[in-house]
Design a binder for these strands. Structure first.
Lengths: 355, 355
DNA sequence: TTGAAAGCGCTAACAA
DNA sequence: TTGTTAGCGCTTTCAA
């Protein structure tokens, strides 16, 4: 049997312990670990040696308590199974790290106001909150504003003046897709919606229907809640119907890929000829050769860095309730016909930019 | 100009403020927010009312300091662009939330010992550390053990006795894939490796080469560092060579899908007849009809929950350095030929279980 | 440059 | 059941 002494969990050494060993005051130890502090080279050496010997590491929890800054940002984000969110989290992680922040993560299915969760985050005294595809209740929004906590919604708009938001160009993108499909000379249109409650989804739908309506085209509609399997089911039902659509716009790439699979493998359709299918986001997989999905890009990196920039601005000054729209491109791939005008070849990809 | 008074960020109310308003002691307020504490119904009401009025929320930072428990677990995880890691993070998030923990996230490219990062996490006094596909330096491992901090490596093995680990069945899986490809009567084998330094990758490669070697089959080899584009390049080069392989094992699904795309779209191969391509992980996309990749499954949910269970066990007792292998299945899809024996149809999927 | 002392907001004995 | 009293580990005046 191994010596049980090996397993005794000692408490971590404190600045006090280091001070005692180095023969200095505890505040000297603190100064040694504070960048701009006034401390002699000799003391610093002594302290550093003692700290090393003991394996001392400054307790950031204690520091946060005193400084009233945790350098932690709370990030609330839904379904990482959707590559769009995974990419967004990766971007946020990089941008926040650069700005000197850590992420306290909460990953949960998209809901409108995950209040109990947010309560938790606020109790941890995060320095700011980033809500991806979800929004704040008015009570919580007021509270955040009262204590000066920056909040930015990513991929959701809000009418609350105290909450900032960053979104892709939902209106412009959906309108472009509608015009693009018209340019491809399609006749029977369909839209597969995500969540009924999503401001983002509603904006895309309104712009798509509006543009098509102005051209005198009706649009069939289904709802798939941003769920892959539900999108398959909706597509299956649409394509199996009496007057199947020859152009489908799915509110996200993830759903569009589901529809694509159904059209190709279950209905044997030549996607890009018989039928065009488009999505929204431009996730990584949209560019895979087996997928090759035409879609409107939401520039994840740009959206993330704008969100972080807004937080930093809000943490400095007093400006609040900023709202930004990040523009994107309509990327043309193999899942659609090629229109006769507006196609611009950038070399590594084709985009649609009608005059 | 709006009244500047609107923007004054007041400090958040403390238990002290609540106590003053409610006319009780500060400790009464504390008790009111401590589940099992002894407090009269009347006081609790008064405190609750005051707390509500002020918008009080207990400061968990202060609580952590005193309790020496943060209820935060540090998670270090690489490339969320790889759906395997995104799924793993989602699973960890769910399991840790159930166990009452929050996640302090660090997302960075896979390296062996991201020490500066880990330093940070330890300074935040996380209650435990989960390292996905990366490992601890011996110095840090010792330190963690000294202060009784549970560490578990997920998807990496270790020889350090103080660090626990949870991995999929890398040996068994790679061996099964080798035997499977032999049963499919392939002749010219190739292996596309991930990172040369990954214990997981090495185990897969050794088992694959070993099994094939025992059958007298040589194996061509390339390295793609788990990067999609690199895998495409390696596949392109292999398939364009003099004696192209008719069976390729990629160390991850992500790379296998890259190879699949090249084989299908660039070389016009009938994958599943001319050539078989297999991966490892069974990510969501492997089941997409356009992909349909035969692969060995790493059960993400099971791995995550084992990791969390180990942490909880380690937090309770003294057991340390546990090491678990979570079994998986070889899932047969369209990217391979169908062997003449061992195929078991489960209804929703086919797996390979030779007698 | 240094140390002493007073907290940051809370929990946990200990008395009352 | 309550209030009083020490701290948790650190930063930050303030004197020395």
């Amino acid at each position: 049997m191994a010596s049980s002494r090996d397993h005794v969990p000692r408490r971590a050494p404190t600045a006090h312990d280091v001070a005692a060993l180095a023969g200095v005051s505890q505040s000297a130890v603190s100064r040694c670990f504070t960048p701009g502090a006034s401390i002699s080279e000799e003391t610093r050496q002594r302290v550093q040696a003692a700290a090393e010997q003991l394996g001392y590491r400054p307790n950031l929890i204690a520091r946060s308590l005193i400084k009233r800054r945790s350098t932690i940002v709370g990030v609330v984000i839904p379904g990482l199974q959707n590559p769009f969110y995974a990419a967004m989290l990766e971007a946020l992680s990089a941008d926040l790290a650069t700005a000197g922040y850590r992420i306290l993560l909460f990953n949960a299915p998209a809901r409108d106001t995950p209040d109990p969760v947010l309560d938790e985050m606020l109790n941890y005294r995060v320095d700011a909150l980033i809500l991806v595809s979800s929004s704040l209740s008015s009570g919580l929004a007021d509270e955040c504003q009262k204590i000066g906590l920056p909040v930015v919604q990513l991929n959701r708009t809000t009418e609350r003046s105290t909450v900032s938001s960053v979104v892709g160009d939902n209106r412009g993108g959906a309108e472009a897709l509608a015009r693009f499909l018209l340019a491809c000379e399609h006749e029977r249109f369909a839209f597969i919606a995500g969540l009924e409650t999503s401001s983002t989804g509603k904006a895309r739908e309104a712009a798509f229907l509006g543009t098509l309506g102005a051209a005198g085209k009706p649009v069939a509609r289904g709802v798939a809640n941003y769920v892959f399997e539900e999108a398959e089911a909706v597509a299956r039902q649409m394509l199996g119907g009496a007057e199947p659509p020859d152009a489908i716009f799915c509110a996200s790439d993830h759903m569009a890929i589901a529809a694509l699979g159904v059209a190709r493998t279950e209905f044997g359709l030549a996607v890009g000829r018989d039928i065009s299918i488009v999505g929204f986001d431009d996730i990584q997989m949209a560019a895979w050769p087996q997928i090759s999905l035409t879609t409107f890009r939401q520039p994840v990196r740009a959206m993330s860095s704008r969100a972080v920039a807004i937080i930093e601005a809000q943490l400095q000054g007093t400006r609040t309730g900023l709202s930004e729209v990040v523009p994107g491109d309509l990327v043309i791939r193999g899942s659609t016909r090629m229109p006769s005008h507006g196609v611009v070849d950038l070399g590594y990809e084709r985009v649609w930019r009608p005059s």
